[in-house]
Design a protein around this nucleic acid. Structure first.
Length: 416
DNA sequence: TCTGGGGTCCTAGGACCC
DNA sequence: TCTGGGGTCCTAGGACCC
């Protein structure tokens, strides 16, 4: 089998139109949020910059302080530093200059302030990132139309049938996409190309930033097996720890385990999946369109709140979250039937409660009422750090199931 | 001095129906 | 009094990802 695949992949350069083997790319923007901020503030280039934290009052003051200047003219010294930062929040993205100091995604800002006090702290501006996200995806789609969205800064791309997609195992097309994105946006990205999504995702991490990596079917043992199990997309901290407890550290070690043994210890689904993944096997198709399952809003308070003592503040926040979720539903054109809440206590333990209504809704008051009933089913003697509201079991507002669609549907129902 | 804000999918138990 | 399965929906929690 291996030899056959090898033969296919090597004949591929000679007869690119005869040997269309599956070539999937994973493209990952490099330090996306931070890179977008550097386009806006080029004077910060090469300085350590972190993006993240809570929305702060001073976020808007920067532009107001220098009304006559363009953003690029604001002097470096005017930017807020991490030094002396107090409060909650984590880093969302850090520039590569900041990563030198050991600060990166998910690190608490107060910890980061110790490691790199001189780093500049910028607030998250999701609207701006979304614009660039749409832009780079449009550029890719122009070159290779079959793509799967994986959030704001990642996509899978099917190279298989794209002209040039088979040359050098996909490297040529990857280079073209990378170059075009850079020329048109100023942003860099990393690309991995492989026979499937699993391997492409791993490959895209090989040469970060601004890198390309190609993995062929016969290279799984040499390029994938030496990696830690944690590198498999889907093996998180918990599974990794469990694997380690069996002495399994690398994907190669995982690959020596019998399918039955894995199923026995990790369950039929996960066990079988792990077995395939360790062999580099993955036949999942690209998902080019999908509908949302739920829409939610949550917020971590600036200080922990008490259900009784801070009742007024909490109530106002709760209502606000419900309104925001309702707005999101309406803007996106969805209605939902399952209303849920999420609480996180001061000890970081969280609970959820949900309730399914008889009818679909996108109405803030209806959501607020149902969420209020959920809240009553939860113990409230401990301080809270987070409150969230979720609406699930979504359908499109204009679909027949919603019960809210157009008159024609209603007419149909009456006459039937 | 802990640990953001969105999401998806899976599991497992109980209710309820046939 | 004891005894079935199968299917679906609902709820709670947890792992994982970006």
């Amino acid at each position: 089998m291996k030899q056959k695949l090898f033969a296919l992949s090597s004949c591929n350069d000679l007869f690119p139109f005869l040997c269309m083997i599956r070539r999937i790319a994973h493209l990952d923007m490099d330090a996306f949020y931070a890179s977008v901020e550097l386009l806006r503030y080029p004077q910060l280039k090469d300085l350590p910059v972190v993006i993240g934290g809570a929305r702060r009052a001073e976020d808007e003051t920067l532009r107001q302080t220098y009304p006559g200047h363009t953003l690029a003219d604001i002097p470096r010294d005017a930017f807020p530093r991490l030094q002396g930062y107090t409060g909650r929040g984590v880093i969302t993205t850090a520039t590569y200059a900041a990563r030198q100091f050991g600060v990166g995604s998910a690190l608490g800002l107060m910890k980061a302030a110790k490691l790199c006090p001189q780093a500049i702290l910028l607030p998250v501006d999701f609207d701006e990132y979304r614009k660039y996200s749409l832009a780079f995806k449009a550029i890719i789609r122009d070159i290779a139309p079959v793509i799967e969205n994986r959030g704001v800064d990642e996509v899978y791309i099917d190279f298989t049938d794209v002209p040039g997609g088979q040359r050098e195992g996909g490297r040529v097309l990857a280079r073209l996409i990378q170059k075009t994105i850079f020329e048109q946006t100023g942003l860099t990205c990393s690309v991995g190309v492989a026979p499937n999504k699993l391997l492409a995702k791993m490959a895209s991490e090989f040469n970060k930033p601004n890198g390309i990596a190609v993995v062929l079917a016969h290279e799984v043992s040499s390029k994938i097996w030496p990696l830690a199990c944690r590198k498999i997309n889907g093996i998180g901290p918990k599974s990794d720890e469990k694997l380690k407890s069996f002495g399994i550290e690398t994907i190669g070690e995982l690959a020596t385990k019998e399918r039955a043994w894995l199923i026995n210890h990790f369950g039929p689904k996960t066990g079988a999946w792990m077995h395939d993944a360790a062999q580099g096997q993955d036949d999942r198709p690209l998902v080019t369109a999908s509908e949302p399952v739920s829409i939610s809003r949550e917020t971590t308070f600036e200080r922990d709140l008490h259900a009784v003592r801070d009742k007024v503040e909490l109530g106002a926040l709760f209502t606000h979250l419900c309104r925001k979720v309702a707005e999101d539903l309406q803007r996106q054109g969805y209605v939902g039937k399952t209303i849920g809440i999420k609480l996180r206590y001061d000890d970081f333990k969280s609970v959820t409660r949900d309730q399914t209504l008889d009818a679909y809704t996108d109405d803030a008051c209806t959501i607020r009422h149902a969420a209020g009933l959920c809240l009553k089913r939860v113990p409230l003697d401990q301080r809270l750090r987070l409150l969230g509201v979720r609406v699930g079991s979504l359908v499109r507002r204009d679909s027949p199931e919603s019960g809210l669609s157009d008159r024609l549907t209603l007419f149909d129902r009456q006459t039937n």
